[in-house]
Design a protein around this nucleic acid. Structure first.
Lengths: 228, 228
DNA sequence: GCAAAAGTGTTACCGGTACACCCATGT
DNA sequence: ACATGGGTGTACCGGTAACACTTTTGC
């Protein structure tokens, strides 16, 4: 009896698609895969998956992420649901996009390569199936919004990083060159990063102090990092 | 053949729920209904509906809005999908929340009353079924975000309105008293509203100029109305 | 005249921007 | 010594907040 309350109403295939961002080589990149099933097999797409009977959308996205880059407990946020009845050519699927942030150095790259995944700079995306380009565009907007209200970097940079690296990350995310002097002062004024005694001498003779996020870092309301 | 591509993957009931905001009596209000089916029949809830086979989520939300307040073409925006498998006690439904803005003076109030709908101030919401309180909280955040980046009011105020009314609307949306002098100067600096020759003498002896949105008003990027 | 809301003006301060400048060091 | 990126200082400008003040008009 209880299980038939909503009979008569249609049931629909529900999926998730993951916009996986990383920061590498001074660029913000997105992980794409050649689609492995028809229709449009072989075309570039986000990694996705159907939602199981006992999974939330977030559970499903986490599962896809683990199967894709081999990581658990990574930052992830819902972007939007995409539901045009004809968004896939043959059969109807409602898909919710998520974006995730992962560090370039710690994901399972063998796993990625096994599925023929490739990282594309956000500025040089290939044509994508269905509405996946729109998903990426909206995911980027969300990421920019996040980055303008709180410090990103913990999820995208190595544990220890220089302020110049953080500056470059912001440049990549916003496709804009923030003044190094002002950027560094802004970060200092937030009083959230911890300076370590160590220096990075990889990219300069003088060496630059390395910083870390405190273990208990929680984004504070009301900080406004960049204009937007 | 084409129609059996995704067999094996579960299909799920999909619904929408509408957070309908209006501005009335100096307060931001939300339209709630006593739920008319089991489970939890009679408890307060948002108005919602199942998504049809050939409808997008947006289509379904528009349909619910028309059935609820008798209006087409009203402002509406997706908030988020809610998908915990146990969010409803008996049967699984994934629901996507939308929020809508309507003018208090033009909706079909007989229709609302026929369904026993009631307007609740955002500050005095009753207990709600399932995760509907969360939906409203997230919808309010979205509304605040919108209001901080562009001028709201066209969707919530009468066609002609005074700057004091607009000021009060912002006060209600943010639960904060913005300085009338500064607010009025801020609005003027945006150069978007048009002053009419008419005055409203309802609430003051002196009378206040009425303003309108231009017919071709498009929110501009980058305007920042209030802090946030 | 007075109350009440509309509307203007004044000032102090803070934060962002632009840009010049110094610092440390490997070659 | 000098080039290179790291890091600091300064001067200006615009927006914001707080609040005093003027205007209009019904009672």
């Amino acid at each position: 009896m209880a299980k038939t309350r909503y009979t008569g109403y249609p049931k629909i295939h529900v999926a998730v698609d993951c916009v996986i961002f990383t920061y590498d080589d001074g660029q913000l990149k997105v992980l794409l895969y050649p689609r492995n099933i028809e229709p449009r097999k072989g075309d570039w797409s986000l990694m996705g998956g159907f939602v199981g009977d006992r999974e939330s959308l977030e559970d499903a996205a986490r599962r896809v992420l683990e199967q894709t880059v081999g990581l658990r407990d990574i930052f992830m946020e819902q972007v939007s649901a995409f539901s045009q009845p004809d968004r896939e050519p043959d059969e109807r699927v409602i898909s919710t996009a998520f974006y995730a942030l992962i560090r370039n150095d710690i994901h399972n790259s063998e796993l990625v390569e096994a599925h023929r995944g490739e990282w594309f700079p956000i500025t040089e995306l290939p044509p994508l199936i269905f509405d996946h380009s729109k998903m990426i565009a909206m995911a980027l907007q969300r990421l920019q919004n996040k980055a303008s209200h709180e410090l990103i970097g913990r999820e995208l940079l190595p544990r220890k990083f220089t302020l110049t690296q953080l500056n470059n990350l912001y440049n990549a995310v916003f496709q804009h060159t923030f003044d190094p002097g002002n950027f560094r002062k802004k970060i200092a004024s937030l009083n959230v990063l911890l300076q370590t005694p160590d220096k990075d001498t990889g990219s300069s003779k003088k060496g630059a102090y390395l910083y870390v996020f405190p273990h208990d870092y929680e984004p504070k309301d009301f900080c406004r990092i960049v204009k937007v």
